[in-house]
Design a protein around this nucleic acid. Structure first.
Length: 887
RNA sequence: GGGCGGUUAGCUCAGCGGUAGAGCACUACGUUGACAUCGUAGGGGUCACUAGUUCGAUCCUAGUACCGCCCACCA
């Protein structure tokens, strides 16, 4: 209901004229996804910041949206079709299938938005965008065309990471290396015209069918004499050269390496250097493709083995083919040895299939060129990473960036705006009509064009997100006002996927960084330090936590744990603790209300007269300062703990307790002031807590004023307080003295097992007139909070237990109420401890270098501590004597 | 192989050149009119190890050990 009220009031919308803008774009979640812990953390931090800046008067735009998530979504829908035993993707055909995906998007597309709302995310939902909206699609096409025109997007035939399950190319970033136990086969290749063999080692013997050379190191004495000779490739009969290439490492394997340019990235480079043929021996599904393969038979001499190879191996899956080939070679005596071998196998991060380096035509972005200004922008501090050390990671990757393969053989996504003429000539244009016109001009007549079937990598559209969501390519007022955005908040796992690419696109298209700051937060991981995932079964569902403890508690926990480490291991007990915190606040508000503490127009906290009121004004000022500073520096955890400490341990524990005697008294003026101050301080607490716990604070904000004037507006739109210099040293000194005194007495009572119900008198002796007056002023408080019977001054009675506070001795006449043995033991222990403290301090003060080099206040502190310790020890000795005498 | 991070209370984690902190858990007492989803008090730490810098190191430097992440490569 609160969230709805905010929404209905348009509280999330930007547009404060005259205010400085503050813009943030959401990392778009998968449109058909569901809120997980990473989203919860990410969006909590954004919302904390957004609410903070909104309260500080900025014109805040939090731009929300969702991502079409090409592969992921397509896979989900395909799986759905399979589960429902409906016709699969190919049977449906492209158009029908895409329709189904859109249908699924409509069905599930609002789930994540609803979940973000439950979390309290104050995005401007009226501006919700989707990466495949018409506007954003137009931006994609325009950028594609412009980059193509600039030569920064091009089509190229080279090796890509091919996923033989999803039947698409993927980018380097989507490949994961997995350690796998396998074998290393040492194959004997016969050298032409001799009876000799050259032995090559390989983990993938089946690729030998596509070998077009054997490489040895030019300086390798073992093989020098073979350079320039040929090998007859077993089974195939192809004559292939032995070449010298520095790539070959004499230390590895046998020092001779087979070269398969069409199926290995390194071999591809070697192949180019030596102008070797590239023979593709696999089809898209990673089955051996030999029959009718013109490449394959090139350079093959008539060879009886060949027929066998072709017939048996054609159409066999790569791993089955491997076994057949190994068996055959073994039968021919061409296997030197087989070793057990652990090596990294590349797998697709979505499908898990072993990735095949595969020779195809794909579209590429010239990332190397685009990276230059993007690197420069960070080097010059136009964009700053927080924490800063992520810049190292960013630079390292950007400086070694490879061409970005952006075409995907999928159906769900932005179809590439390229059309092919009858002769294969490419026409790249934003619209089909433009391509048609260009083609007509080229051919001199109208021709039928065929559109490129591929779609773009999901991250291509994400890279445009900071400006495409603001209306680009149109020159919208939003674009002018909110670009560049202020801060991007995201996890480190997508620095390469997303942050780097936004930097590149932003610099190229907008000629300006997309954001001033990038706050990189930790990943919420499981206890093994791995990303949470459903398949591992150890996810904590944020929605369950919201159900159990409330969104406020979850948000506070996440903010409090957002320190700049790398992992967050979420403990439910922590969430529970912060739920209790919300309850505590609720109860404090109830107390306030019961005591008729209501906001008073025109109340000026700086004019307060009652000491405790002046003190709380100063304390809330300190809280304001530390929370503001922390949030400005993205130190969410510090801000969270500052407000927690202020509300619980300052406001509830002490202030509310200290004012009880005042409220119970009959000084009407003091009561009135205290009521006003309580309400003021509580309002202040709600305000400072609001970015973290928006729901409970907003609710209390409304409740606490309803009986009097009512609130004109939401807390979320209330101004963040300005500093007013409310600290008051005198009040601080006085209240902290009271707090210490109460704590001391409580501690002694507890330690000596004085029954809680037993009230005892307290005698203060040796105190200055000031201190006596001070104690007298707080008599009610002392009697109540320390559970004392009376307060008097003068000579301590015989048998009283003494404690020392500052210059005063406090005597509690406890003889008869307490366990004397235990107490005297305690005193002795205490005296011993003080003795060793004094020794340590003496040693320090005797050290000339300490005295001369340490900062003055540190030395002074030590001296004071020594004086105190000595005095305390002396008094404890006396107390001990008296205690013993009393028995 | 390159890079980055971690190691602090039983657990989950903050912090920091000047006597170690929070939440949870634990122990004892307590229902005093906001709050038992609570209060008060308490126990529990050679701040991983070694060497150095420093008057002083949990903190800075170098190294060691273990844990983890990212990138690259693997014949």
């Amino acid at each position: 209901p609160i969230y709805r009220a905010w929404e209905d009031a348009g509280a999330f919308a930007p547009g404060r004229a005259g205010a400085k803008p503050f813009a943030i774009v959401i990392p778009p979640p998968n449109v058909t996804g569901s809120l997980h812990m990473g989203h919860a953390l990410n969006n909590t931090l954004q919302d904390v910041l957004v609410r903070f800046e909104r309260m500080r008067g900025r014109d805040v735009l939090w731009q929300p949206g969702t991502d079409h998530a090409g592969i992921a979504t397509q896979m989900v829908v395909e799986r759905q079709l399979m589960d429902r035993q409906e016709p699969g993707r190919r049977a449906l055909g492209r158009e029908k299938f895409i329709e189904r995906v859109w249908q699924w998007k409509e069905e599930s597309g609002n789930t994540i938005v609803g979940q973000l709302k439950r979390l309290g995310a104050s995005c401007d939902w009226s501006r919700l965008r989707f990466t495949m909206d018409e506007g954003l699609s137009r931006a994609v096409r325009k950028v594609f065309v412009e980059l193509h025109r600039a030569g920064l997007i091009y089509k190229d035939k080279r090796l890509v990471n091919w996923d033989p399950e999803l039947l698409t190319a993927i980018s380097d970033l989507e490949v994961e290396q997995t350690e796998t136990k396998g074998h290393l086969w040492h194959l004997r290749y016969p050298i032409e015209g001799t009876a000799e063999f050259i032995i090559v080692a390989t983990t993938r013997p089946e690729t030998m069918l596509g070998d077009t050379a054997v490489a040895v190191h030019p300086d390798d004495e073992r093989y020098k004499h073979l350079i320039g000779k040929n090998v007859i490739l077993p089974l195939v009969g192809r004559r292939i050269p032995i070449v010298a290439d520095e790539y070959s490492d004499p230390e590895k394997g046998t020092g001779a390496v087979k070269i398969t340019p069409a199926h290995d990235f390194n071999d591809f480079e070697v192949g180019k250097r030596h102008a070797l043929p590239m023979i593709n021996i696999l089809d898209q599904e990673a089955k051996l493709a030999l029959e009718g393969n013109a490449d394959f038979v090139r350079g093959v001499d008539p060879n009886p083995e060949l027929d066998w190879t072709l017939q048996e191996l054609h159409g066999v899956f790569r791993f089955a083919g491997r076994k057949m080939i190994v068996d055959r070679l073994e039968g021919m005596g061409l296997i030197e040895k087989i070793e057990a071998y652990t090596h990294a196998v590349p797998r697709g991060d979505r499908s898990g299939a072993v990735i095949e380096p595969f020779l195809t035509d794909q579209w590429y972005v010239d990332a190397k060129t685009l990276a230059v200004p993007a690197i420069d922008a960070v080097k010059r501090g136009r964009t700053v990473f927080v924490p800063k050390n992520w810049e190292t990671t960013y630079f390292h990757w950007m400086e070694n960036i490879q061409p970005w393969c952006i075409s995907r053989q999928l159906w769900w996504g932005h179809q590439i705006p390229a059309w092919y003429g009858p002769d294969g000539k490419i026409f790249v244009a934003e619209e089909e009509t433009d391509a048609g016109a260009a083609a007509e001009a080229h051919y001199g007549k109208a021709v039928t064009l065929k559109r490129d079937e591929d779609v773009l990598d999901t991250w291509f559209s994400s890279a445009l997100w900071p400006f495409s969501t603001l209306g680009w390519p149109d020159k919208t007022p939003e674009l002018a006002r909110y670009y560049p955005t202020d801060v991007l908040i995201t996890g480190f796992d997508i620095i390469f996927f997303w942050v780097a690419r936004m930097m590149m696109m932003g610099m190229h298209v907008m000629e300006e960084v997309p954001f001033r700051d990038v706050y990189i937060h930790a990943l919420v991981r499981d206890e093994k330090g791995q990303k949470m995932s459903k398949s591992k079964g150890n996810v904590i569902d944020p929605l369950e936590l919201i159900d159990d403890y409330g969104a406020d508690a979850l948000r506070f926990t996440l903010a409090a744990m957002a320190a700049q480490g790398r992992d967050i291991k979420l403990a439910t007990s922590r969430v529970e603790g912060y739920r209790n915190f919300a309850t505590k606040l609720w109860n404090a508000a109830r107390f306030s209300q019961m005591n008729e503490c209501a906001p008073q127009a025109g109340f000026d906290p700086s004019k307060a007269k009652v000491t405790v009121n002046r003190w709380i004004a100063g304390e809330s000022e300190r809280a304001l300062a530390s929370i503001t500073d922390a949030l400005q520096a993205f130190r969410f955890n510090e801000a969270a703990s500052a407000i927690y400490h202020f509300i619980w341990h300052v406001f509830c524990d002490w202030y509310l307790e200290l004012i009880k005697p005042v409220l119970a008294g009959n000084d009407q003026e003091a009561i009135a002031e205290t009521r006003a101050m309580t309400s003021w301080a509580l309002d202040r607490a709600l305000t400072l807590l609001h970015p973290f716990m928006p729901f409970v604070t907003e609710e209390l904000w409304a409740k606490l004023a309803s009986e009097t004037e009512g609130r004109k507006s939401f807390l979320m739109l209330a101004p963040w307080p300005e500093r007013q210099g409310l600290e008051n040293a005198e009040a601080d000194a006085e209240i902290s003295w009271v707090i210490r005194l109460v704590s001391e007495v409580r501690s002694v009572r507890a330690e000596m097992n004085v029954p809680a119900a037993a009230r005892v008198p307290l005698v203060i002796s040796g105190a200055s007139a000031d201190t006596e007056a001070r104690a007298k002023r707080h008599e009610g408080t002392l009697l109540r909070l320390a559970r004392l019977e009376t307060l008097s001054f003068g000579k301590p009675p015989q048998g009283a237990v003494q404690i020392v506070l500052d210059e005063a001795t406090l005597a509690l006449p406890l003889a008869g109420v307490i366990d004397v043995d235990a107490e005297s033991k305690r005193l002795k222990r205490e005296i011993d401890r003080l003795g060793s403290d004094i020794k340590a301090i003496d040693a320090k003060l005797a050290n000339e270098q300490f005295v001369s080099r340490a900062p003055e206040h540190v030395v002074e502190e030590q001296r004071e501590r020594r004086v105190e310790a000595e005095a305390t020890a002396a008094r404890l000795e006396q107390a001990l004597k008296r205690l013993e005498a009393a028995v």
